[in-house]
Design a protein around this nucleic acid. Structure first.
Lengths: 224, 224
DNA sequence: CTCTGTGAAGCACTTCACAGCC
DNA sequence: GGCTGTGAAGTGCTTCACAGAG
């Protein structure tokens, strides 16, 4: 996942490693809801989430005490509780900057609404792209960034610009008052300590897999 | 990034946290190369990579001793060394499965070759998509998965299918002998312990940012 | 004197194992 | 009897601080 976190405001004692896993639990719970399952156990939920049962129980213990001993967890209420803990009760409005291949795909990604997000604006610097429609929105010029952020009450920005422009755009995003950035550009962003940046870089992920692939090949050639 | 790692074959003593940062260092080094910088320091390189200088030095110490005390690091040779450590010397051949919005964008993402990867095949299940061209390749039917993996010597699979099909496809990918999976579907995959899965989920990343956003709002309302 | 390389200390997260409650 | 919640133990990562090399 995500690879870089800056300026994390650590909340009421919830470890950030725990926070990073809450979305997986929520996903698994919603899956159970949709399958009509009413109750689950730490073993089942952990398996669906890809973690160990002890980890799951420990994580949930930071949020409160939500299961019934000897029985398990109520799927609906646990889902509701995690939703609240993540702060997804009121909608978060996001702007996507950089409507190239990736930005376009991100704009069309369905499932924002279901997860508590609303794509409020799309921005790009290219005259060829500005004015076109995508995902039901007209792409606006990135020069209007500050105005758009205020008008649309944007609290999260998704950066999908070319790497070369990412830092400059990020500086303006921060200046406009946004404190949460999801960065898809293959560059580490310099931001003030009170801004959170999460970075997603496909190239890096592939390189990490390549390392493990090589390690396996090496282990096999030496082990036998 | 990435949120889920399964079945990691830990290599010659290099901590996985270190491995996960090596791509950032490599990125920063290539940036310096392209700017014609010949020598760098742990402070400079760390800043460009978004980590602390001590962390950088510690990480590099796992790979060997590559700097000159009192001087710093030679940019070219350090880049070369990290490239080798990551196993990027020989090309890794990847297949992308699920050529929807996201799969299409991933296929067209430029920069694979430069980073040591080659997109060898695109696969999809929809008759509307199979046979179309994208990124210079003809999309093949996912039924031919096993054949394609063998023919193209695929070692890494990028999964961009709908969540509902991800597990079934992953099972076939593993059965076909692939041991490295980059999963974009919002689902935790069940795989044998010797398979590496890295998961990238935009929804989860946004939810984590939402949590921090809420934590900040809470801290501000209480702090004052 | 500068900047790397690294043992040692510190910190955070994970896992264990069992007490507590249904 | 079963499953949660949690202190305590264990593990791994990060940060420090300084010795060592140029």
């Amino acid at each position: 996942m995500a690879e870089q976190v800056v300026g994390e405001v650590t909340a009421p004692g919830i470890p950030s490693a725990t926070v990073a896993r809450l979305p997986s639990y929520l996903r698994a719970l919603r899956d159970l809801v949709s399958r009509g399952v009413a109750t689950t156990s730490s073993v089942e939920l952990a398996e669906l989430s890809g973690v160990g049962p002890a980890q799951l129980r420990k994580d949930l213990s930071f949020l409160g005490s939500f299961g019934t001993r000897g029985v398990g967890y109520d799927v609906d209420s646990l889902a509701q509780y995690i939703t609240e803990a993540l702060g997804l009760v009121d909608e978060h409005r996001i702007a996507i900057i950089g409507i190239g291949n990736l930005g376009h795909a991100l704009a069309n990604y369905s499932g924002y609404e279901q997860r508590g997000f609303h794509v409020a604006a799309l921005l790009d610097a290219s005259p060829d792209v500005v004015g076109t429609r995508a995902a039901g929105l007209v792409v606006e010029h990135v020069d209007a960034l500050e105005e758009v952020v205020e008008r649309e009450k944007v609290s999260i920005v998704v950066l999908a610009t070319p790497a070369a422009h990412a830092q400059a755009v990020a500086d303006r995003v921060v200046a406009a008052g946004v404190r949460e950035i999801l960065n898809f550009a293959p560059r580490a962003l310099q931001v003030p300590p009170d801004v959170d940046v999460r970075g997603v870089d496909v190239g890096s992920e592939l390189q990490i897999l390549a390392f493990h692939s090589q390690a396996r090949a090496l282990a096999e050639s030496q082990g036998r």
